[in-house]
């Protein structure tokens, strides 16, 4: 059916995934089944193809699920998983509540203003992500801009602690991920013809009913894409909680970092990563099923 270049093009992404995702992921899975050791690399057993069949068999036999058992046994781990999911869910909900009205307003702007609005949404990307987070630290810290303004206006009598709180982290997450919510929403909302809303009103729906009966269901694919695009990376987010949140509880990204670099326990860190991936596959599969159902419905 396909011409040769077309077949090559369809193989290329598979090859890419194999080389840069599946093979490395295989390594991570293998490490997650190993034991930590004071060695280089810092785990055992090692598969040495040159050591002969017997040694290889022994190495296989030495693999175990102990690290995964540990993840469930020690509440440090599942607490950080839960916190990550809770933070990601809360931040995504906030993002949707803030992003939807913005995307909706953008889609209803006159055509010539839409490009400008889009530019304004994307423009923060022109500055490095880290610099923007450091800017927030500057604003939120004890003698930062926010406290100076509040004190200057006599709204507070003493500096308020903003930095190193969950609110600061939420602010940072919403600020950083907002474009990822707005853009897919805007893409779907701007494709809904205004005549559909007029038809709904013509048939007796108030503008508000028309929104819930027409605009909202038609924007579901955009909502799904925006939610995934925000939720999944926020679950594994490291920089924002590390720089803006307090140190009393950790998200999974921070725990992972700790195991890898402070604890030097690569096998436990790998197990954490494998479990995280398994957790994140669930919403992805759900989204794909939703999309497939819509595609089938559309055929």
């Amino acid at each position: 059916m396909f011409t040769r270049p077309a077949r090559l093009a369809s193989i290329a992404p598979l090859l890419w995934m194999l080389l840069f995702f599946l093979v490395p992921f295989g390594f991570v899975v293998k490490i997650s089944l190993s034991q930590a050791a004071i060695a280089q690399p810092p785990y055992l057993p090692l598969f040495d193809l040159g050591a002969g069949w017997e040694a290889l068999q022994a190495a296989f036999a030495a693999l175990s699920l102990d690290n995964f058992k540990l993840l469930f046994a020690d509440d440090l781990y599942w607490r950080s998983y839960l916190r990550s999911l809770a933070v990601a869910a809360a931040a995504t909900a906030l993002l949707l509540m803030i992003g939807y009205p913005i995307a909706y307003a953008m889609a209803r702007l006159p055509r010539r203003w839409q490009a400008l609005a889009m530019m304004l949404v994307i423009i923060p990307f022109w500055t490095s992500f880290l610099i923007r987070i450091y800017a927030w630290i500057n604003i939120l810290q004890h003698d930062g801009l926010l406290n100076q303004i509040l004190l200057g206006l006599h709204l507070v009598s003493a500096p308020v602690v903003w930095l190193s709180t969950d609110s600061a982290m939420m602010l940072g997450l919403v600020y950083s991920y907002l474009p990822f919510m707005i853009l897919p929403l805007y893409a779907t909302l701007s494709k809904i013809p205004p005549s559909l809303l007029e038809a709904a009103q013509d048939l007796g729906a108030s503008p508000r009913r028309a929104f819930w009966l027409v605009t909202w269901p038609l924007s579901l694919p955009g909502i799904g894409a925006g939610v995934l695009l925000c939720f999944i990376p926020i679950v594994g987010e490291f920089v924002i909680p590390d720089l803006l949140a307090g140190s009393d509880s950790m998200m999974i990204g921070q725990t992972l970092w700790l195991e890898f670099f402070t604890n030097k326990d690569w096998p436990v860190a790998s197990a954490l990563a494998v479990l995280l991936l398994a957790l994140l596959l669930l919403p992805l599969l759900a989204y794909e099923r939703l999309q497939r159902r819509q595609l089938e419905g559309g055929r």
Binding site: P193, S195, L196, E198, A199, L218
Partner: peptide, 10 residues
């Protein structure tokens, strides 16, 4: 009203 492009709810 019957709309020009029908405006059926997809």
């Amino acid at each position: 009203m019957m709309f020009q492009n029908y405006a059926l709810f997809p």
